[in-house]
């Protein structure tokens, strides 16, 4: 079904009633699985993903399917299991058959999934302090329960939350979101607006990109654009995307802090010395 963008010019509202710079509702939880080292659940609109982190642990037997990154050497990938001096980040993504509208069976060797696994492993390796855990492995399992656009962004955000929950030392949050543009690639209209956080319908019809940044900085860890777009559109889309990442970071930060407060109040953890000024009512 083609996306009707004709009304956008009149009311400046998108198909789901958002303005150009509005994110969809983000709902996130951490520590959802009691037995796991780290876990999280994240919703970005109707895109819903679950993440479980195991490790850092002793590397298991090598499996062919898992795509890995040998720690900080982001370009290399496929590092030696257990022999490297950095921890290895192994990512597994399972896309549930019922997650999208048309039920599609995806094998484990689907190239798109493999590419996402590799992107996630290299993205997280850029922020995790993998050099602190030599000869070990950090396994991140992600389950996609529902897809409605911005899948890669949701996966990155969920993985970040789960890594925080697992207590793996990291530089800062890696947060991601998507950005698009209202013009099609052929139209060279100057009035095209950049859009933040595309849903599935918009993702199919409009040019867009996924951007992941480190913390509050403007530094881009991952940038994935899969559609044809004029080079002049890139700057606007990137600026909106980076700004969206900062908004996402705030939301994730609140989720982590709320969980921390809850744990202190419950007495699960001792109140640290640096937390005296924290408001715990």
């Amino acid at each position: 079904m083609p996306l009707d963008t004709s009304t956008y010019g009149l009311a400046l509202l998108r198909v789901d009633g958002r303005r150009w710079n509005e994110l969809r509702r983000i709902y996130a939880q951490i520590r959802t699985q009691a037995a796991a080292d780290g876990s999280s659940y994240l919703e970005m609109g109707h895109t819903k993903v679950m993440c479980v982190v195991t490790g850092p642990s002793e590397p298991g037997p090598r499996r062919g399917a898992g795509i890995s990154s040998a720690g900080g050497a982001g370009g290399g990938g496929g590092g030696a299991g257990g022999q490297s001096k950095d921890a290895e980040v192994v990512v597994n993504i399972v896309i549930a058959g019922f997650s999208s509208v048309d039920r599609k069976r995806r094998g484990r060797s689907d190239k798109r999934t493999l590419e996402m696994q590799s992107t996630l492993a290299n993205t997280l390796a850029a922020t995790l302090h993998t050099h602190l855990f030599p000869h070990s492995q950090i396994t991140i399992s992600l389950h996609v329960l529902s897809q409605d656009g911005s899948l890669l962004a949701a996966l990155i955000n969920a993985a970040t939350l789960a890594c925080v929950d697992a207590g793996i030392p990291m530089t800062d949050y890696v947060t991601a979101c998507t950005a698009g543009s209202t013009s099609t690639y052929a139209a060279n209209d100057e009035g095209a607006d950049p859009l933040l956080d595309l849903n599935h319908q918009e993702e199919q019809e409009l040019p867009g990109l996924t951007v992941a940044t480190l913390g509050e900085s403007d530094r881009v860890v991952a940038l994935v654009c899969e559609s044809r777009v004029q080079i002049s559109r890139l700057e606007g889309m990137l600026a909106v995307g980076v700004d969206g990442c900062k908004q996402v970071r705030e939301i994730l930060d609140q989720v982590i802090k709320a969980q921390g407060q809850k744990m202190i109040l419950e007495g699960t953890v001792d109140k640290g010395t640096g937390l005296n000024d924290m408001d715990l009512d």
């Binding site: 290299n122 850029a126 990109l209 900085s217 881009v220 994935v224």
Partner: peptide, 25 residues
């Protein structure tokens, strides 16, 4: 014609957004 068909920075070291734009040009 100056149309971007694809960009893939699949993780790795973080790079300033501005320098990525310069790289594209």
């Amino acid at each position: 014609h100056g149309e971007i068909c694809q960009i893939a920075k699949l993780g790795g070291v973080p790079v300033e957004a501005v320098s990525l734009l310069q790289c594209t040009n």
